[in-house]
Design a protein around this nucleic acid. Structure first.
Lengths: 132, 132
DNA sequence: TCAAATATGTTATATTATAACAAACGTTAT
DNA sequence: ATAACGTTTGTTATAATATAACATATTTGA
C-alpha cells in the first residue's frame, strides 16, 4: 500500500526545488542544483520525480520534458491536468477550471474507450510577453 | 514562403513509413527502417519530421516521443490536436470531434493568455485490450 | 523481530534530439 | 542561361533525456 503523505529525503529535496522554482524545471537542472546535497546521479532524480508524480505533487509538462509543482488540489493525483504554456518565456501555468475539467472527464471517445486520465497543453504568448 | 504541397525525397520516405504504420513510430525506429534507402543519420529523420509536423502531415505524441500520421483534415496545421492513447497496447487514435475542438479553441485562460494551439492526450484501455 | 516493501547509491548504458558545417539541388528574376 | 537565394541533403560529433541492473540500507508493519 502506498503511503502518499510522508516524503523520503530525496523526494523532499527534489520537491522543494521544484516548488521554489518560478518555472518548469528539467531533470538535469534539478540534478545540478542538488549535487551539494549529496545527490549525484540522474537515477536518484528520476526516481524521486516518478514518486512525486505518482503522489500528484508535481506534474510533467510533456511538451517540454520539464516538471512543475502541482498548484491545484483539484487534479486528483493527476488524473486531469491542463496547462497554459507561453511559447516565448516558457512560463507554465496550471489551469484549474472545474467546467473544463468536468467537460473533459466526461468526454468519452466514440470508439469505445473509457478514459482514465487526460493531459491538456495550451500554447500561446502570455500577457507579459505580449507587452514587450 | 512555404511550399507545403510537394514533399522532398526524405520527407516523402519518412511520411510513407509513418502512414503505413499501425501505431506511433519513434524517430530511431523510423531511422532503422529507412537505412536501406540511404538515410543514415538521425538528423535526416528529425529534419523530415519537423517539416512534416509544420505541414500538418504528422503529429508528435508528446507523452510517447512518437509520431503518427494525421488522419484528420480538421486539425488545421496542427493547431488543435487530440488523441486517445491505450496504456496497454500503445495504440493511438486521433480524435476528430468538432464540438471538443470548438470548445477548446474557444477556451481562453483567465489570466489573459490567448491560445494559439492546444494538444490533448487522453489515456485509458482500449476496447480491444479490455476484452483480453 | 523478522519479513516485506521502499528507498538509496552507484556504474553503466540506452534513447532522444540538436549543433555545426559543407555540398547539392530548386526556384526565380534577370 | 546564370546568378542569387532558399531549401534540402549528407555527415560527424555531441548534447540532453531517461532507464537498466545490482548491491545496500532504511522503514514499516505483522
Amino acid at each position: 500500500m502506498a503511503r502518499a503523505q510522508t516524503l523520503s529525503r530525496n523526494q523532499q529535496i527534489v520537491l522543494d526545488i521544484i516548488e521554489k522554482a518560478k518555472g518548469p524545471l528539467k531533470a538535469y537542472s534539478i540534478l545540478f542544483n542538488v549535487q551539494k546535497k549529496g545527490i549525484n546521479a540522474p537515477q536518484q532524480i528520476y526516481r524521486a520525480l516518478d514518486k512525486l508524480i505518482g503522489m500528484g505533487k508535481i506534474h510533467k509538462i510533456e511538451s517540454k520534458n520539464a516538471f512543475v509543482a502541482c498548484r491545484s488540489s483539484d487534479c486528483e493525483i493527476s488524473k486531469a491536468t491542463a496547462f497554459s504554456i507561453c511559447e516565448s518565456c516558457e512560463m507554465v501555468d496550471e489551469i484549474s477550471d472545474t467546467k473544463l475539467s468536468k467537460y473533459l472527464s466526461g468526454f468519452n471517445h466514440k470508439k469505445g474507450m473509457k478514459f482514465k486520465r487526460f493531459n491538456l497543453e495550451f500554447f500561446g504568448i502570455c500577457k507579459k510577453c505580449k507587452k514587450d
